[in-house]
Amino acid sequence: MFRMPPEWAPHERTWMAWPGPNLTFDDEAGLAQAREAWAAVARAVRRFEPVTMVTGPGQSAEARALLGPDVELVERDLDDAWMRDIGPTFVTDGERLAAVDWTFNGWGAQSWARWGHDSKIGAYVSDLAGAQTHTSELVNEGGAIHVDGEGTVLLTETVQLGPERNPGWTRAQVEAEIHARLGTTKAIWLPRGLSGDYGEFGTRGHVDIVAAFARPGVVVAHTQPDPAHPDHELCKGIVAQLRAETDAKGRPLEVVEVPAPTTLKADGEWVDYSYINHYLCNGGVVLCAFGDPRDKGAAAVFQELFPDRTVVQVDARTIFAGGGGIHCITQQQPLVGQG
C-alpha cells in the first residue's frame, strides 16, 4: 500500500519552481524581489539536502546566478512558482516511489490565475524523479493537506469541499479519494483557513499556514494574540477543535500554539503571516521570519520541538505578499525505504 510519509521522514531531495513573469509578480522589481526570496529558501534547504529547481525556458542562467552552483536546474514551461501546489505529492510503499498528480485548477479557477503549464508539472516532476504517477480527479494542492505518517490527515472545508474546486463532491467522496491516495484513514477537517488567505492571491484556506503535525500526536497551530485581527477568534476555535480531536491511532492531540507575528496589516490588508508554514528537511527546519519581535520566540518553539535539527530562519515577507510561504514553495521527495 502506498502512503505519504510525514515531512520529518528522510528526503531524497526538495523540488522548487522558479518565479517567472506573471500576474503575481507583474513588475520587474517585484519579480526580482521574488527571485531573491526563492533563492534564499533554496540555499537554506540546500544546506541539508539536494534541491532541484524547475525554471521557465531560458531562465536557468539568471537562476544559477542567484542560486549558486549546487542547485540542480531543469527547464519546463511554468505559469507560477508554488511547487507545493503544482508539483506531485510523493508516496511510497516502502520499496517503490510513486507520486499523486492531483488535478490543479489555479486554486479554484481564480480570475488572475493561469494553469495550462502548471497543471502538467506534477506529472513532469514525477517522471524526473522516476516515480509511478497516480493521477487523481480530485482538485487539490499539496498545501491543502498535512499528514502525520500514521493515518491522519488535516484538511480544510473551504478547499477540498469548495465549489470552486470540487463541485458535487461530498465529504465522504473527498475522504475516500484522499485516503486511497495518501494511505490515510482519518481526516480532521478544519472549517476554514486564515482571513488573509481569502485575499486576491490567497488559496481560499490552505491548512499549511494554520496547523501542521510536528510528530504523531502533536500539532503546531497558529494563534493570533491581538483581538483586533479577524483571526483572533478563528484561531481560538481551531485550537479548541484540535485539542478535542483524536488521531487515527486514537490519541488525543497535543497542540503547541505558535503566536503570529505582531504585524497585523501590509498594504492596508490583514496579513496571514504564520510561522506554521515551515519546511522540514534532512536535519533542518527552514522557518519563516518577518523582521518581527516574535521571530526569535517562534524559532525557540521549533528548536524545542526538533532538538536534533538546525533551525534556519529566512525572511518570508516577499513570499507571503505573493500568496504563500516557505512550505508553499517547497515539495519533498521521500527517500525510498525510509520513513
Results as ranks from 00 to 15, higher is better:
11 H>D: 07
118 D>P: 05
41 V>T: 11
290 F>K: 12
277 N>Y: 05
41 V>W: 02
93 D>T: 02
17 A>V: 15
223 T>F: 11
217 G>E: 08
206 H>V: 00
5 P>A: 13
284 G>M: 10
305 L>G: 02
152 T>D: 11
234 L>V: 03
133 T>R: 15
258 V>S: 05
204 R>S: 13
261 P>H: 00
291 G>T: 07
302 F>R: 11
167 P>S: 09
234 L>S: 09
290 F>S: 10
89 T>P: 01
331 Q>L: 14
35 R>K: 06
218 V>F: 02
303 Q>H: 12
319 I>K: 05
242 L>Y: 07
223 T>C: 07
150 E>Y: 09
230 P>C: 14
76 R>W: 09
154 L>F: 01
134 H>I: 15
291 G>V: 06
165 R>S: 09
74 V>Q: 13
153 V>Y: 02
309 R>M: 03
89 T>Y: 02
269 E>P: 00
247 D>I: 02
53 M>E: 03
328 C>Y: 07
126 S>F: 04
58 G>N: 10
215 R>K: 14
41 V>F: 04
332 Q>N: 08
217 G>L: 11
280 L>Q: 02
283 G>M: 10
191 P>Q: 06
267 D>E: 15
8 W>Y: 11
266 A>E: 15
5 P>T: 07
235 C>E: 10
54 V>K: 03
91 V>A: 06
118 D>M: 10
298 A>R: 10
256 V>K: 13
200 E>F: 12
323 G>N: 09
33 Q>S: 10
47 R>S: 05
138 L>D: 00
121 I>S: 06
200 E>Y: 14
170 T>I: 04
246 T>Q: 09
129 A>V: 02
259 P>D: 12
191 P>I: 11
25 F>T: 14
128 L>W: 01
8 W>K: 05
21 P>D: 05
299 A>E: 12
32 A>K: 14
121 I>C: 10
228 A>R: 15
151 G>K: 10
181 R>M: 13
194 L>N: 05
192 R>D: 00
154 L>T: 03
142 G>R: 10
277 N>M: 00
309 R>E: 09
274 S>W: 14
33 Q>F: 00
112 W>E: 01
84 R>T: 09
214 A>H: 04
213 F>H: 08
328 C>M: 02
182 L>K: 02
124 Y>S: 04
210 V>H: 05
275 Y>R: 04
142 G>P: 03
116 G>S: 11
175 E>T: 06
182 L>F: 12
180 A>M: 06
260 A>H: 07
288 C>N: 15
287 L>R: 13
37 A>R: 04
68 G>R: 00
216 P>C: 14
83 M>E: 02
328 C>V: 03
31 L>F: 03
58 G>Y: 11
67 L>P: 09
282 N>W: 04
287 L>T: 07
25 F>N: 12
280 L>D: 06
121 I>A: 06
299 A>Y: 10
26 D>E: 12
202 G>I: 10
287 L>N: 07
313 Q>L: 06
186 K>T: 08
306 F>E: 15
189 W>A: 11
249 K>P: 00
39 A>V: 13
240 A>Q: 08
58 G>D: 10
87 G>W: 06
73 L>K: 01
